[in-house]
Amino acid sequence: MNIFRLAGDMTHLLSILVLLLKIYATKSCSGISRKTQELYAIVFVARYLDLFTDFISVYNTFMKVVFIASSLAIVWCMRFHPMVRRSYDRELDTFRHYFLVGASFALALILHEKFTVQEIFWAFSIYLEAVAILPQLVLLQRSGNVDNLTGQYIFFLGAYRAFYILNWIYRYLTEPHFTRWIACVSGVVQTALYADFFYYYFISWKNNSKLKLPA
């Protein structure tokens, strides 16, 4: 474990806590893409298949359980909680996210570290996570105004993978045989997808104005 990876995990956890706060405090999920949340649930289930077979550390197991449980709870809330589901922007959240699932799985069948079920599902979860934010960014473009908690949620979600990139650079420099090309290239693509959001987020923060994404 290094400081970059710890910062990344804590930022990722923070993004989930901010989203849970928004949904719990406002009893609303307006501005949140359910499709992106469903993709994240698939990402965590597919990535943590080793939850019961490989014990790394208490921290590792604890965080995996938190990520799986929170992503499933958020999807459940957005689908079945009477108050929350009413505020879902169904007509704005129209990205065909199943294409992302199919494409990521197809890519994982071609590009993986080992041709085993666990490795293919791991690569699939890495590719899917890189594009999982797309329905959310599309929804933001359509809904125009972004409430503070949603903006902070997306900011922390984007920042966490940027910390992971620093982690991979650090590990590459300090650990002789460390290579995680699939995760690293995918992580760079994932972070790049947030580039314009980060730009408008920074502008709104600098001008102390409401975050607006150009339609």
């Binding site: 995990d9 990535r47 490989d54 790394i56 965080m63 995996k64 080992k114 992971y164 995680r180």
Partner: peptide, 10 residues
């Protein structure tokens, strides 16, 4: 499983 197969990152 070999050591390097185990994914120690989240």
């Amino acid at each position: 499983k070999e050591a390097d197969d185990v994914k120690d990152e989240l």
